[in-house]
């Protein structure tokens, strides 16, 4: 079992590292990640959301629906814990 896990882990790592070979260097400002979608958040956050903290404006506004989902996740987890841990009342 351990050997199998080790093989799987090494394989997974190999694939992941293989992927990094074509990645832009860390900190490179010319990556697609920094150039395609995100510049708008930086440059227009003030006029569109009036929030200087860009993370906040994205979190609460541009991608606010994700945050609703996030809240739902917490709610689910809470309900899940109650459901799981609530003990049966003794009759």
């Amino acid at each position: 079992m351990r050997i199998l896990s080790l093989i799987i882990v090494i394989l997974t790592a190999a694939v992941l590292i293989y992927g990094t070979l074509d990645m832009p260097d860390c900190g490179n400002p010319d990556t697609p990640a920094s150039q395609h979608v995100s510049p708008r958040y930086v440059t227009r956050t003030m006029e569109e959301t009036a929030t200087p903290n860009i993370v906040t404006s994205v979190l609460g506004d541009y991608r606010g629906y994700d945050t609703l989902g996030e809240t739902t996740v917490i709610f689910s987890a809470g309900m899940a814990c109650i459901l799981i841990l609530r003990k049966r009342r003794r009759q």
Binding site: P29, A33, S34, V37, S38, P39, Y41, V42, T43, M46, I54, V55, V58, L59, R63, D66, T67, G69, E70
Partner: peptide
């Protein structure tokens, strides 16, 4: 002038908060 290049990319931060 607000230049995107002078601020790090906020989107991954947002994703990771979630």
């Amino acid at each position: 002038a607000i230049e995107a290049i002078s601020y790090i990319n906020p989107l991954p931060h947002v994703l990771m908060l979630t």
